[in-house]
Design a protein around this nucleic acid. Structure first.
Lengths: 241, 241
DNA sequence: GAGAGAGTAAAACATCTGTTTCAATCGATC
DNA sequence: GATCGATTGAAACAGATGTTTTACTCTCTC
């Protein structure tokens, strides 16, 4: 199992904060960022108010101007911080050389689903998803540092796995996989409304990861299809191709 | 091909509007709803302003109070209207009796992807997706009338197709399929940022539908896996089970 | 200890936003 | 034509919100 996280797994300390060797009280700037992250995640950019953020952070109204300039710059910084807290996607563990393509893909999907469903910081993940659903000024950061590396890694794996597939179908295949990974978190509230909160809560994160892996690999012909004998864990099941 | 739409395919006239036999000018209430739909779709509930909506609708500020009471009630009505414009999911065409389960599923997925990617009213779809991503007071309507029927229909098909699967895996399988259907529209802006607008625009809606169908059916063992011989269109390819 | 500079506190500002008020207008009915 | 109800128009209101200003308090340096 090569995908043990080598990077941050807990909400990390403020990354490389100058002069932050204090004991208990965090920097005001850092408190503002943390409060902003929560508030923006919960209410969006428009919905969150700087007054509320400052109150939560125990700082004065003027401090957001002092440290960040204005609300929007604070927002962008909060998103940047969130993408670190949520676990940067470009820090995906690299499988050891010689790992079979199918195994690489399996590890990737598992990692993706796991990170989505049990993020180190739920608020950070929520904020990132919000920015993804409605890209604004901060989307560039999220895409460049968080998503694009993962997307390109996935595409490389698929190309290795399906060398005969044209670009467009390769792209769509990646979307099919990512779509599944994103669904559970992106649409969890709605799923709960449809099927009831209990039914959704009952879904174990590991079981979801396993299922998405099997579904995707089966679609690619590298696992036993869903619904077949329960031992559907073998890698290259059918001797086709 | 049984899934030709029997219901609305164009932005329908205001449904059952009392005394609307006029020629050109629409009811002020209807103009407000239309403008609100666009504004809320574009900027969200907080971001859209009643002043802007009224200006677009050519109505007075007081009219939103007069016709709807307040901004939130206008929002709810706009969402209700949107879910009609976007094509109610409970109006899915029913396949003729005796249709094989696989064909039913194939038709369902195709219909779903098509409706998502080429909606009658893009703004309406955008507003619905917004409400789904961040469920508020209007989510209940969207879920009950738009999504739940489709979700239950899908689950019934899957149960018919995979009778030996337990409830949880049935649920997850449905999520895997819906996740793919939703991805392209829900994350189109981000996809464009990652791979470039041209690459995404180049994806034909029909090709996407075909691909999602094949990916899903292959995962269920009812189509040739992705990457196999290009003739992957047969229904029950492998002679297993 | 004086001075400088970083950080904080409280108030004020200007603008925007949802909502309300109240008079004016229009159209049909008696 | 007068009356009544529905609808519209313009202005005003009250509150919230992002931002700025100004004075104050530390802490560190000289």
């Amino acid at each position: 199992m090569f995908y043990s996280l080598p990077c941050v797994t807990m909400p990390p300390d403020p990354p490389a904060l100058p002069g932050n060797d204090k004991e208990a009280e965090a920097d005001a700037r850092e408190r503002l960022l943390a409060a902003a992250q929560d508030a923006f995640a919960e209410h969006g950019f428009k919905g969150a108010t700087v007054r509320d953020i400052c109150r939560t952070a125990g700082a004065n109204i003027a401090s957001v101007n002092y440290y960040f300039g204005d609300k929007e710059k604070l927002y962008i910084e909060a998103v940047k911080r969130a993408h670190v807290c949520a676990g940067r996607m470009d820090t995906f563990p690299v499988p050891p050389a010689g790992t079979p393509p199918v195994e690489k893909l399996r590890g990737f999907i598992r990692e993706m689903v796991t990170r989505m469903n049990t993020p180190a910081s739920p608020a950070a993940m929520k904020l990132m998803l919000r920015e993804m659903a409605d890209p604004g000024k901060a989307a560039h950061v999220v895409v460049t540092e968080f998503i694009q590396p993962a997307a390109f890694a996935l595409r490389a794996m698929l190309r290795e796995l399906l060398p005969q597939l044209d670009e467009q179908h390769l792209l769509m295949t990646g979307f099919c996989i990512i779509g599944q990974c994103l669904y559970y978190r992106q649409n969890r509230p709605i799923s709960e409304l449809i099927f009831g909160k209990e039914a959704i809560d009952a879904l174990d994160s590991n079981a979801v990861a396993d299922h998405v892996v099997r579904f995707s690999l089966a679609a690619l012909g590298h696992a036993v299809p869903i619904g077949d004998a329960t031992s559907g864990r073998k890698t290259s099941a059918r001797g086709k191709k």
